[in-house]
């Protein structure tokens, strides 16, 4: 096994709110190796987003250690180590889809030609070729979310952090994007952290499934998937797949019974 690119050790995070402290993460330890596809699944409010934000250096844990590529998350963020897809698309309304995708490229100083080339390529990847000149409000919610994925892919970071990127999409588009994402992952060997509410999606995509439970948010199960890296869509009907899905469901139930 290679060295882990992301390690979290005994992570704790408490938000101080007006209604008193909210214990969002408790004693979270996890290693993510290079090239892994890790899904985070768990009920609403169990700290999935918070954990992803800790990895991204957008949130400071109150205790514990976390490192990304051997650096602190803050350093990794400044080194542009990852692309982040937020729970909502968050496109800038005054920029066309093409210029939204170019935003990180402009900031990182890519040449004009390179910007155009990359924008064309990633928009094609998310099936939005031809929508470059449209403004966000002219696109459906799902298309906007795909544009935000294209934006995160555009600068080719080694790590991709995605917070429920496909939550707003219909089943067919979701299947298609899942397939595309797997292909992209296989081809580029990116390390992916992926938050989802869907058990089939988590099992289909991941090499590692992290089941979380709420109040306080913690990891209740980590499942290393025995599925091969090469996964046609119909693998979802195999006995192996169903067995893993069962284990995830059991993990989620256990978290609920705890309450």
């Amino acid at each position: 096994m290679t060295d882990p690119v992301i390690t979290a050790k005994n992570l704790d995070l408490t938000f101080e709110t007006n209604d008193g402290p909210v214990h969002a993460l408790k004693d979270v330890s996890l290693d993510i190796n290079k090239g892994e596809f890790v899904s985070f699944i768990g009920p609403s409010g169990c700290g999935k987003t918070t954990f992803l934000r800790c990895i991204a250096g957008l949130e400071q844990p109150t205790a514990g250690e976390i490192s990304v590529n051997g650096m602190t998350p803050d350093e990794a963020r400044r080194a542009r180590a990852y692309g982040y897809v937020f729970q909502a698309a968050g496109l800038y309304p005054w920029r066309t889809i093409g210029r939204n995708v170019k935003l990180p490229l402009e900031i990182m100083g890519f040449s004009k030609a390179e910007q155009n080339e990359r924008t064309r390529r990633v928009l094609e990847l998310v099936d939005l070729a031809g929508f470059e000149k449209k403004f966000p409000w002219q696109l459906s919610g799902g298309m906007q979310q795909r544009a935000s994925i294209a934006r995160a892919l555009a600068f080719d970071a080694d790590i991709l952090l995605m917070d429920e990127p496909f939550g707003a999409l219909d089943e067919i588009v979701r299947d298609h994007l899942n397939e595309q994402l797997l292909k992209l992952w296989a081809r580029t060997e990116k390390t992916i952290g992926f938050v989802t509410h869907s058990i089939p999606e988590a099992v289909y995509l991941s090499t590692k499934i992290v089941v979380m439970s709420p109040r306080p948010g913690r990891i209740s199960d980590v499942i290393d998937s025995p599925l091969p890296r090469e996964r046609p869509l119909d693998i979802r009907d195999s006995a192996e797949f169903i067995e893993i899905a069962h284990r995830v469901r059991d993990g989620l139930r256990a978290g609920h019974i705890d309450d």
């Binding site: 991204a56 957008l58 963020r77 542009r80 982040y84 937020f86 909502a88 968050g90 800038y92």
Partner: peptide, 11 residues
């Protein structure tokens, strides 16, 4: 979120 997005680019 719009501000966080820029932070992820190290802006």
């Amino acid at each position: 979120m719009q501000l966080d997005l820029l932070r992820t680019y190290g802006t």
